[in-house]
Amino acid sequence: MIKAGQIDKGMGLLIKGAPFVVVEREFVNPGKGSAFVRLKLKSPTTGQTLQETIKSQDSVEDIEVVDRNYQYSYNDGEYFHMMDEASYEDVSVPMKTFEGYEFIMREGDSYRCTTYNDEIIDIQVPSKMVYLVADAEEAIKGDTVQGATKFVTTETGLRVRVPIFIKQGEKIRVNTETREYLERVND
């Protein structure tokens, strides 16, 4: 059991017998009342999300999770295939578990994953990642307005809005949470 105040993003909790991952945590103090912690939880298996508000003194059942390194091999549209870097074993993870990360994760990269009962329930993606610009529209001639932008597609398939000077084959740094362009990266 864990006290509400110690719950943090990325932790695993057992809710009505099923594992959930904490995706958001926020402290709330209603005008007249006890202190609460509001949680947004996600089921790694079904992708179902739950809102939950617990009192700061409440205890919640947490689950024993282990962090391990996995190499992302590929996805087949239904499952991500991850290779355990210690045992070289291939583990399939339902697409729902890493929902939103399919164009963020790069094949061949190593990621720290949270496991529960030997199943992957969450992934820790770096907050900034460098991508290769695989496809870029040509900047429209004559468009010299400052701050003008266009879309490019990275080698992982992520579409990012960038300044017009970015060209195909260049590298860019992207905030993986907001999917926003941060800067051009020169090798």
Binding site: G33, R38, T53, I54, K55
Partner: peptide
Amino acid sequence: LSIKIPSGEPWDDVFNRVFCT
């Protein structure tokens, strides 16, 4: 809600859970 509310919890705390959630 999915988390059990302790028995004896006063009405106003239950209200705050519902309102915040």
